[in-house]
Design a protein around this nucleic acid. Structure first.
Lengths: 209, 209
DNA sequence: GTCTATAATTCGATAGAC
DNA sequence: GTCTATCGAATTATAGAC
């Protein structure tokens, strides 16, 4: 049922990260227990503290891991020498795929953002989430300065629009299947492409206004 | 601190709805206690079951109430005789304001969508959320058929893009305040207007492609 | 207020890699 | 022999019961 356990092929640290992702995602930060995480990784409790300074450090490491992986994707995807339409479409597709592949961590982050804003959340945003977000914003700003896209708009708004569509899709996938009239629920790539098309070209008829 | 309590100006049913909104939002459906809800409304436990068939009926009524109120707004806002740019901007602004004004219910719904998809959630989507969503989709479809907006795009995708931006803003308002380079966090109307501008006009330079 | 249970964290020791 | 991963036992912190 769970794919971690004492899978001796990977080292303890890695097994701890994936066990922690599952446990934090299921119970939230406060509800998660170090003992359960250790058990899930097939190691002793004290081994956790050999690899990570504290429960919070482990928690941040779980998210940092996923964020760093997506950072690699950004290296490939965000290039001002490419056509911005393609760039954005590819960003959107890869981002949604990343959310779905790292569903546990994604849920963890969304859960955190909903809880009352504390210092832990601020650290999370500042140190882990913000860098990738700022790279997207930076790309959009450069594209605007280079005349590749419209320049009179806030790049942070554009970024939030793109991310918001993916996040809502990710959160509501199952609910979408209930709604009639489309087949979005089982076609994330198609959804991502359609969103990037909407955002890039807009609703307005070509040639008007 | 909380504005419900035994405020005898409004009737029991109304006080129950707002007490229930607070309690469900805080503890989720399973965690919420009818006794606490009754106490918060200043009525006895049996009064709850006089007004509502069951815990689930009360829960759905809380959300239905907010959805119906927003349905009123849709009547005012979605009109194919208006300029679609204005329509969408106004929809976006009112929707975000509605999320913020009904923050407890909004959090409740988002929480529900994240939990494992069960029958309760399906009822919620089908009976309560879907009607308003379909009205937005229907408006976009008509606008496309009338030639007011581009017709080769999926209206459900457009709707999800608009809603996603608002939902993400709503969920991450406090986190946004931490990110540098913008003042979005304390200007929801400005955010909504900027998003609708992006979605309506697109990123592409006017006159190109 | 004290007692108790639970959970985080630290300590000291062991075993294997190089 | 040192270094690193590991463990079991010991130590604190905290929250709830009485």
């Amino acid at each position: 049922m769970d794919s971690n356990g004492a899978d001796s092929q990977v080292d303890g640290r890695t097994r701890l990260l994936s066990s922690a992702a599952a446990e934090f995602s299921r119970r939230g930060f406060a509800g998660a227990s170090i003992a359960t995480i250790a058990r899930g990784a097939g190691v002793g409790k004290s081994t956790v503290f050999h690899h990570f300074e504290s429960k919070e450090a482990l928690y941040l490491a779980v998210i940092r891991e996923a964020a760093a992986e997506f950072g690699q994707t950004l290296n490939t995807v965000l290039s001002t020498t490419e056509d911005p339409g393609r760039c954005i479409a590819e960003f959107q597709r890869r981002h949604l795929a990343h959310l779905q592949r790292n569903a546990e961590v994604a849920r963890l982050v969304l859960r955190e953002l909903q809880e009352p804003f504390d210092e832990r959340c601020e650290t999370l945003v500042r140190d882990v989430l913000s860098p990738n977000f700022q790279r997207l914003v930076g790309y959009l700003k450069e594209a605007a300065e280079a005349g590749l896209i419209r320049s009179n708009l806030d790049p942070a708004v554009v970024a939030l629009t793109l991310l918001g569509a993916n996040v809502l899709y990710f959160q509501s996938r199952e609910a979408l299947a209930v709604l009639p009239g489309h087949d979005l629920a089982d076609n994330p790539d198609g959804f991502a492409r359609a969103v990037s098309d909407v955002v890039f070209r807009g609703l307005v008829q070509r040639g008007e206004q």
